[in-house]
């Protein structure tokens, strides 16, 4: 009895109508001739009905391996399923669309910061601060407020790590971490909901 090790890959990209073989989704380690035969098994063919995500579960792979050679002993490690993402032709990047989103963010955040300033009585605080430090009254203390406004932008840029991009290459910025977390949540969802092996419907529903 031969021993083989299999490890599912986390995420693979395929094209439409492509045959997904074992070697695309699984790393197999074992005697070379067996591995070569195993890797060539076709698991499925990507069809249009599959939309853009297919989940291949470890049990499907083990089933196929068993069908080929029931004598093999399979040791598994790593993730229990692979997310197969079907890459369709890249959506054309619409410049107009982009400008729209850009303007939305620009105007939206501009108004939001104004609302925030009114909400926390920023004007009043700045006036008081001006009085506190200089002893004079000033209805609009621009000497604080203009540096403040530019500082606002600088603070955001600092937080999103764009000045220091080159210098701290290894450490991800908060935004990158957040993107990663979001992707993980999405993956978790599709693993549970797109996986045929983890859902069993009642027949007459």
């Amino acid at each position: 009895m031969e021993l083989i090790y299999v490890r599912m890959r986390n995420r693979v990209y395929v094209k439409l109508n492509q045959e997904v073989k074992v070697k695309d989704v699984v790393k197999v380690i074992g005697p070379e001739d067996i591995v070569r035969k195993l890797e060539d098994i076709t698991l499925l063919e990507v069809k249009k009905e599959d939309k853009n995500i297919i989940i291949i579960d470890l049990v499907q792979v083990i089933q196929e391996i068993g069908r080929m050679d029931g004598e093999l002993e399979v040791q598994t490690f790593g993730p229990a399923q692979t997310i197969v993402e079907v890459v369709y032709e890249k959506r054309k990047f619409s410049f107009l669309f982009f400008i729209g989103v850009w303007m939305l963010l620009f105007i939206g955040t501009g108004i939001t910061i104004m609302n925030y300033h009114v909400d926390v009585s920023m004007q009043e605080v700045h006036q008081k601060l001006f009085k506190l430090i200089t002893g004079r009254e000033d209805k609009s203390p621009l000497l604080i407020q203009i540096p403040y406004s530019f500082g606002l932008g600088l603070g955001m840029v600092l937080f999103f790590n764009h000045f220091f991009k080159k210098r701290f290459n290894e450490e991800p910025s908060p935004l990158e971490v957040e993107m990663f977390n979001y992707q993980q949540d999405l993956d978790q969802y599709v693993i549970m909901n797109e996986n045929k092996e983890s859902i069993r419907q009642i027949d007459d529903r």
Binding site: F106, T109, I111, M114, Q145, G153, M156, V157, F160
Partner: peptide, 12 residues
């Protein structure tokens, strides 16, 4: 991100 940053600065 730049849209948001400029939005904040110009709005302010």
């Amino acid at each position: 991100i730049m849209a948001v940053v400029f939005g904040k600065v110009i709005g302010s």
